[in-house]
């Protein structure tokens, strides 16, 4: 029972904390959190809650192709948001597509974060030539739009892979391409924070104890530079999802057999002018709402973690 009481006390403390308080102060943030939760929840739970499995040929019937949404005259109660040209349920396709979009975006951000935080720590803590080298690379990369970098990396990686495994590994290629396009902000932020923390006395105390640079970076500096990293991660997630959608829209993303939101938009776009607007509009709305909600959360997190604004 005491364990339960301890958990309860922790929850109460978290609820009373400044961050929770600033969360409760903002209705927009709460709405954004709710929307994000719904979309991410829907994506994660897609296999269980989606009406059909769009990737299972047994469940797809060409006879159901191009049915408009429920509220149209020719709507069908089985397909709330209508179907595509192959007879797949749009709602299911969006749920599954969101699953891929979010998974690719999150994995790409995680990769960018790992790379950026590590390089930023090393750059800031060691300084000198290492720092100069890493930061010049970052500067050069920043002068290109990230979509261009992602395209370039994607092209090179695919070129390096044997043709047989290209399809199977395409999702991973996409993750690495987006991640490599996105690490710079993490590295720059972590570096500047590391420069400040490095000269603080608790770091000097650890040096006197005899701890090496790796241990100091990991155990002492890393926890103190994480809050801006979380903010960037949140905002980067929105951009990474967009980048993935753009790449998929351009046709270099995930294969059409596993459509992400971007792929759905691209495919649907072909039918926009022939009147089947729902094939592209619903995935687009989902993408826009998701990116907006995640962005709002990121902005709130930035303000909530900034002691100067509180």
């Amino acid at each position: 029972m005491s364990a339960l009481a301890a958990v309860r006390a922790r929850v109460a403390a978290a609820w009373a904390s400044d961050i929770a308080w600033s969360f409760r102060q903002s209705r927009v943030t709460m709405a954004a959190a709710l929307v994000t939760l719904l979309l991410v929840g829907g994506a994660v739970l897609a296999p269980w809650i989606a009406p059909t499995d769009p990737f299972d040929p047994a469940q797809v019937d060409l006879m159901n192709a191009e049915i408009p949404p429920l509220w149209s005259a020719e709507g069908d109660a089985r397909f709330v948001l209508g179907t595509d040209v192959q007879g797949r349920d749009m709602l299911s396709a969006i749920l599954y597509g969101g699953r891929i979009s979010i998974a690719v975006g999150a994995a790409a951000v995680a990769f960018a974060m790992l790379l950026g935080v590590t390089l930023g720590l090393v750059s800031g803590y060691l300084g000198g030539r290492v720092d100069a080298a890493i930061m010049r690379i970052a500067d050069v990369q920043l002068s290109f739009p990230s979509i261009l970098v992602a395209l370039l990396v994607h092209g090179i990686l695919r070129g390096l892979l044997p043709a047989s495994s290209r399809e199977a590994l395409s999702v991973y290629v996409l993750i690495i391409a987006i991640g490599l396009a996105d690490w710079v902000q993490f590295a720059r932020t972590v570096r500047s924070r590391t420069l400040v923390e490095r000269d603080r006395e608790y770091v000097q105390a650890a040096r006197i104890i005899g701890r090496g640079p790796a241990a100091i970076m990991r155990a002492h500096i890393l926890p103190n530079v994480m809050s801006p990293v979380l903010v960037i991660a949140c905002i980067s997630l929105a951009t990474a999802i967009l980048t993935e959608a753009s790449l998929s829209f351009l046709g270099v993303g995930v294969p059409a057999t596993q459509p992400s939101l971007g792929t759905l938009i691209r495919i649907g776009n072909n039918y926009l002018f022939s009147g089947q607007w729902w094939m592209t509009v619903f995935p687009s709305i989902t993408l826009a709402v998701l990116v907006l909600a995640v962005n709002i959360l990121g902005d709130w997190l930035r303000d909530a973690l900034n002691p100067l604004l509180r």
Binding site: E201, Y202, A205, I208, P223, N224
Partner: peptide, 13 residues
Amino acid sequence: MQMIFQDPYASLN
């Protein structure tokens, strides 16, 4: 040898 620092706010992680 060990050291004690001036700023009690910066010397503890």
